[in-house]
Protein backbone atom coordinates (compact mmCIF):
# COMPACT_ATOMS: atom_id res chain seq x y z
CA UNK A 1 0.00 0.00 0.00
CA UNK A 2 1.17 3.49 -0.74
CA UNK A 3 0.44 6.37 1.61
CA UNK A 4 1.28 10.05 1.45
CA UNK A 5 2.91 10.67 4.82
CA UNK A 6 3.84 14.25 5.69
CA UNK A 7 3.68 15.11 2.00
CA UNK A 8 5.94 12.26 0.86
CA UNK A 9 4.79 9.16 -0.99
CA UNK A 10 5.76 6.17 1.13
CA UNK A 11 5.23 2.46 0.44
CA UNK A 12 4.33 0.43 3.51
CA UNK A 13 4.12 -3.38 3.88
CA UNK A 14 0.78 -5.17 3.54
CA UNK A 15 0.58 -5.96 7.26
CA UNK A 16 0.10 -2.24 7.97
CA UNK A 17 -3.68 -2.01 8.12
CA UNK A 18 -4.41 0.58 10.81
CA UNK A 19 -2.94 3.76 12.20
CA UNK A 20 -1.65 1.71 15.13
CA UNK A 21 0.17 -0.63 12.72
CA UNK A 22 1.65 2.33 10.89
CA UNK A 23 3.07 3.86 14.07
CA UNK A 24 4.49 0.49 15.11
CA UNK A 25 6.04 0.05 11.66
CA UNK A 26 7.97 3.30 12.02
CA UNK A 27 8.66 2.61 15.73
CA UNK A 28 6.67 5.65 16.75
CA UNK A 29 4.19 3.88 19.04
CA UNK A 30 5.76 5.32 22.18
CA UNK A 31 6.54 8.72 20.69
CA UNK A 32 4.61 11.81 21.53
CA UNK A 33 2.90 12.44 18.22
CA UNK A 34 -0.46 13.33 16.76
CA UNK A 35 -1.91 11.68 13.66
CA UNK A 36 -4.26 13.02 11.06
CA UNK A 37 -5.66 10.93 8.22
CA UNK A 38 -7.25 12.74 5.28
CA UNK A 39 -7.50 15.90 7.40
CA UNK A 40 -9.26 14.10 10.26
CA UNK A 41 -7.46 13.96 13.60
CA UNK A 42 -7.27 10.42 14.92
CA UNK A 43 -7.61 10.22 18.70
CA UNK A 44 -5.28 7.80 20.47
CA UNK A 45 -8.08 5.35 21.33
CA UNK A 46 -8.95 5.13 17.62
CA UNK A 47 -5.46 4.11 16.46
CA UNK A 48 -6.22 0.38 16.47
CA UNK A 49 -9.55 0.72 14.70
CA UNK A 50 -8.74 3.34 12.09
CA UNK A 51 -8.10 1.47 8.85
CA UNK A 52 -5.73 2.89 6.26
CA UNK A 53 -6.41 2.73 2.53
CA UNK A 54 -4.14 3.10 -0.45
CA UNK A 55 -3.52 6.78 -1.19
CA UNK A 56 -4.53 8.06 2.26
CA UNK A 57 -2.92 11.32 3.24
CA UNK A 58 -1.39 10.91 6.67
CA UNK A 59 0.12 13.68 8.76
CA UNK A 60 2.22 12.76 11.77
CA UNK A 61 3.17 15.82 13.80
CA UNK A 62 4.77 16.52 17.15
CA UNK A 63 5.84 19.40 19.36
CA UNK A 64 9.10 21.13 18.53
CA UNK A 65 10.80 24.15 20.04
CA UNK A 66 9.01 27.39 19.32
CA UNK A 67 8.20 30.75 20.83
Amino acid sequence: MTLVINGETVAVPDEVKTVGDLLAHFRLENKLCIVEVNVRIIQKHEYGTTALCDGDRVEIVHFVGGG
Binding site: N6, F26, L28, K31, V61, F63, V64, G65, G66
Partner: peptide, 30 residues
Protein backbone atom coordinates in the same frame (compact mmCIF):
# COMPACT_ATOMS: atom_id res chain seq x y z
CA UNK B 1 5.62 27.44 24.42
CA UNK B 2 6.03 24.94 21.61
CA UNK B 3 5.33 24.74 17.90
CA UNK B 4 3.58 21.89 16.05
CA UNK B 5 5.51 20.48 13.11
CA UNK B 6 5.77 17.39 10.96
CA UNK B 7 7.77 14.60 12.54
CA UNK B 8 10.69 13.03 10.76
CA UNK B 9 9.25 9.52 10.77
CA UNK B 10 12.43 7.98 9.41
CA UNK B 11 14.51 8.95 12.45
CA UNK B 12 12.33 8.32 15.50
CA UNK B 13 15.38 8.29 17.77
CA UNK B 14 15.99 12.01 17.28
CA UNK B 15 15.91 13.66 20.70
CA UNK B 16 12.88 15.78 21.45
CA UNK B 17 12.96 18.37 24.22
CA UNK B 18 9.39 17.79 25.29
CA UNK B 19 10.01 14.09 25.91
CA UNK B 20 12.77 14.99 28.37
CA UNK B 21 10.59 17.39 30.30
CA UNK B 22 8.90 16.64 33.62
CA UNK B 23 5.40 17.49 32.47
CA UNK B 24 4.07 17.65 36.02
CA UNK B 25 6.15 20.82 36.51
CA UNK B 26 5.14 22.72 33.37
CA UNK B 27 2.05 23.75 31.46
CA UNK B 28 2.42 23.59 27.71
CA UNK B 29 1.37 26.52 25.59
CA UNK B 30 1.53 25.36 21.97
Amino acid sequence: TFAVRRMNIFSPEQPNFLEQLDLSKYKLLP
